[in-house]
């Protein structure tokens, strides 16, 4: 079975992936303009400040859009089809891509309340995912 593509953490993202391994879901908040952002960056995408703080996110989100994928692009997903590719609105504001799991793929709807869960893909990598709240 081919492995799914995995993140290669770098300066901006090491903290995030380390926290995910510990089953904590953290995002960045700007110390200057106060806005939250996702994905993690070295600067705030709203005001370019470098004063970013990590905050524990609530893990609550709403499905902004979703699609049941019946065919794998990357071979690592061949055994996962059909799977739900989704973009969710985090309660803190930013959007992120994820999968909606632990439910019938066809039952996922836009506007559905979801909450974070964690998929330990390997010993080193845990992916935050979402499941129906």
């Amino acid at each position: 079975m081919t492995q799914i593509p995995l993140p290669d953490p770098y300066q901006d993202t090491e903290e995030y992936w380390k926290a995910a391994r510990e089953h904590r879901f953290i995002i960045q908040k700007c110390g200057d303009c106060g806005q939250a952002q996702f994905y993690p960056r070295g600067v705030c995408s709203h005001c370019l400040s470098s004063k970013l703080e990590w905050i524990e996110a609530s893990g609550k989100a709403t499905v902004y859009s979703c699609s049941v994928n019946y065919r794998a692009g990357h071979p690592g997903f061949a055994e996962k089809t059909p799977f739900v590719l989704a973009i969710v609105d985090l309660a803190e504001g930013p959007r992120m891509m994820t999968n909606i799991v632990n439910c019938d793929p066809e039952s996922v709807r836009i506007g559905m309340a979801v909450q974070v869960c964690f998929d330990d893909v390997t010993d080193e990598v845990t992916l935050p995912m979402f499941e129906p709240a």
Binding site: P5, L6, Y64, S67, G73, F83
Partner: peptide
Amino acid sequence: ASHIFGPAQFEEPYGVSTVGSYALAAAR
């Protein structure tokens, strides 16, 4: 790729594809 460097590491591990991306727009 099997190891994703850069911001794409917040999409590709979830199985994003070109058609999957456009499907999200269509669904919305």
